[in-house]
Design a protein around this nucleic acid. Structure first.
Lengths: 236, 236
DNA sequence: GCAATAGTGTCTCTAAGACACTATTTA
DNA sequence: TAAATAGTGTCTTAGAGACACTATTGC
């Protein structure tokens, strides 16, 4: 049970009168892996540590879960504080809680990841004053705690989800071309995809809606702009 | 970051001298969804609550995470206490932490699930004295807390994993017939599978090894006994 | 030889992947 | 008309699923 009392017969006596306040409790934090497509690359937002332990190293942003907020609310708050954006795709990744992962005390961290449309981020581009920065998921700096492991696991997860979900759309603005969508897939999967097969597959699912508009850019044929059609996903 | 200190510039002053002991902390428990194939059914081990809240209702077994044990160790301990078995397939499912999910206090629970070979369980069959019982995942009693939601999510997860992993083997003894393996798939997916297609697909993966032995049982042709070959999985 | 379960092969259909040319725009 | 990117179709192959009969055992 997920409760304050154990129900095992073997431990019944203590369990029944268990007072959790008597026991030392771990701290619970929420860390948020915020990713976006920037400079044709999959990048993650990291913060630089200013004190022991791991002073000067980069870390995934996070903080304590407040006593009256849900885990997801804590993650949303963290996300908003760091990037200023709201209404973002957010998903729980995994909970890491090995004793000793933080030398100061026992910390259990529930990790979420967020996929951000870079266009909505540009507002806070000046944020890069000092100790917050975007890094390529393929070329990370030295990371504090077990954060290298967490980012490796995140990448694995979003690659898996890319195949059978619509998470890629969260990295693009509302309207986008098929080529832009293909680039998102290529960047995350880290390999080239065949243009004809990609378009055939995506369009055959029916999850895209032609907006009728075209993206004029440069001295070449303009591309159609599509829009994600959530209704089509539900229909499947 | 997954640590005791926030690194946001905005909160730097407090963050730098943050003392987590000043704040009210949530409790952290580990709940374990223990499942096994029993009576041609997918069953789950539940414990009956003896006190408020949800008195008399059934719940997923669980307990507090000790300050010096990992989450997985806590889950293993819980599993061993309830079933007496060790070396079991165990995987983290999800972390549930909405405020109010336990009316007594803020409890964040990291849920694991375990798939047990029913043959190894028979030793403790007499355990069903009073407040521990096996229930069909398809016909659950009224459950305490948010445990109905947790079990629904568990079923969804193992169905997904069945397709692209080898978790099914954890529900069978070391040697088993193809018919027995097919029954495991049918019970979890909750639909009939075609015998020829099932055998073709499983055997084509090469993850099974013919033991040479046969299972004689009843008045009919005996079936070949196979063994799971983990080496073949790695090779894939 | 009867009852009961084990074990086997073919055909169809769909989806994935390899692969190269035409269309449209601006300068 | 040149440069640059958008957009399109066919063939092959692999895997999924529908489908029915023969093989082996104990009694």
């Amino acid at each position: 049970m997920s409760s304050g009392q154990s129900q095992k017969p073997s431990a019944e006596a203590q369990a029944h009168h268990y007072d959790p306040s008597k026991y030392e409790r771990p701290s619970v934090t929420v860390d948020v892996v915020m990713m976006s497509i920037r400079q044709s690359d999959l990048q993650v937002l990291l913060v630089k540590r200013r004190s022991w332990p791991y002073e000067g190293m980069w870390a995934i942003p996070g903080g304590f879960v407040r006593i009256d907020e849900s885990l997801e609310d804590a993650a949303k708050r963290e996300l908003h504080e760091e990037t200023g954006v709201q209404d973002v795709y957010l998903e729980q990744l995994y909970t890491f809680g090995d004793p000793g992962r933080d030398p100061r005390m026992r910390v259990i961290t529930v990790v979420y990841y967020a996929l951000l449309d870079s266009e909505r981020l540009q507002v806070r581009a000046a944020d890069d004053a000092s100790d917050v920065g975007w890094f390529s998921m393929y070329n990370l700096p030295e990371l504090a705690f077990d954060h290298a492991k967490i980012l490796a696991y995140t990448l694995q997860r979003i690659r898996g989800k890319l195949e059978y979900t619509t998470i890629a759309f969260n990295l693009l603005p509302e309207q986008f071309t098929l080529r832009e969508l293909q680039r998102v897939y290529e960047i995350i999967l880290h390999r080239k995809l065949d243009k004809r097969n990609f378009r055939k597959k995506i369009l055959s699912t029916g999850i895209l809606e032609d907006t009728g508009a075209k993206k004029m850019e440069g001295t070449h044929r303009p591309a159609r702009l599509y829009r994600f059609n959530p209704a089509a996903v539900a229909r499947q």
